[in-house]
């Protein structure tokens, strides 16, 4: 029996290991499939390089862009704008959101304006802001600020409103002042929401930035793509899109999501009690 059991055990562990391997590899499948279709399409249909550049061309142009330093210049220009606009958006959104979250009357009276300006946040401001600010960093930073602000603002206000009042009263009863209540109850209580807001906001901000750079900047990834279109360099366009996607994923999955998860685990207690 034990003799028979051993091979069964090994096959089942082998199968389990295989299953685990498949589970880890499976996210790559769509990328591989799309690449294969792409290779086949360029091979069979033989389209012009403008219509669909071959995979090798795109890889070559990524390498070329990286070696010439053009890629670094544009990525740095884009990330710099994103950083500046996001910091402004996060700071103003946080301050505004906490104030509004603490004051229900103010929240109610401001709500219609927030809803309306949220509906036109970001790219809708582009034409007006080009006339006011001209083409350049200020324009892109404004559009990112405008996008990030509303998301952080709304999440911060919601988070603050959802902190159970009992906690606040607890600190007050123990003699805590207004500032102390804020620091030890309201801010940590709202933190999971605030971080979700920041993460979502940065995702939106990145997309708004690329759109802004298509017309309103002299450098940056969006400009790189748009300039490439003028010379019908599809390989650079596709390369740029892939780089934009990779940066978005790296930023979200490896930077912001871990921070958010840790905070939720640490401070998520508040959300749990809220459900009761």
């Amino acid at each position: 029996m034990s003799v028979q059991a051993a091979p069964i055990a090994t096959t089942s562990t082998a199968r389990r290991a295989l299953g685990r391997l498949a589970w880890t590899l499976v996210p790559a499948a769509p990328f591989v499939i799309v690449t294969l279709i792409w290779i086949m399409a360029t091979g069979i249909l033989n389209p012009s390089k403008e219509t669909l550049p071959p995979v090798t061309d795109v890889l070559a142009s990524i390498k070329e862009l990286a070696l010439s330093g053009q890629l670094a210049t544009n990525v740095v220009a884009s990330l710099y704008r994103l950083l500046l606009g996001s910091i402004l958006g996060i700071v103003t959104g946080l301050i505004g959101g906490v104030i509004v979250g603490l004051n229900r009357k103010l929240a109610e009276s401001l709500n219609p304006v927030v809803v309306f300006f949220n509906a036109i946040s970001g790219i809708v401001w582009l034409p007006l802001m080009i006339t006011w600010l001209g083409i350049g960093n200020a324009l892109a930073v404004f559009l990112i600020w405008n996008t990030v602000f509303f998301i952080v603002f709304q999440n911060a206000a919601l988070g603050v409103q959802l902190v159970p009042e009992v906690y606040e009263q607890g600190v007050r009863a123990l003699g805590g002042g207004r500032w102390q209540t804020m620091r030890s109850v309201i801010l940590p209580g709202a933190l999971p929401y605030i971080l979700t807001g920041i993460r979502t906001g940065l995702g939106f901000g990145w997309r708004a930035l690329i759109a802004a750079e298509l017309v309103g900047a002299a450098t940056g990834l969006g400009t790189m793509i748009f300039d490439a279109a003028e010379y019908h360099r599809s390989d650079i366009i596709v390369a740029g899109c892939l780089i934009i996607g990779v940066i978005a994923i790296v930023m979200d999955r490896w930077l912001l999501l871990p921070i958010e998860r840790r905070t939720v685990r640490r401070w998520g207690l508040v959300a749990d009690t809220e459900k009761e």
Partner: peptide
């Protein structure tokens, strides 16, 4: 990934 590359980036 697709969401990260906004539709507008593919526009050109």
């Amino acid at each position: 990934f697709l969401q990260g590359v906004s539709g507008i980036a593919w526009l050109p």
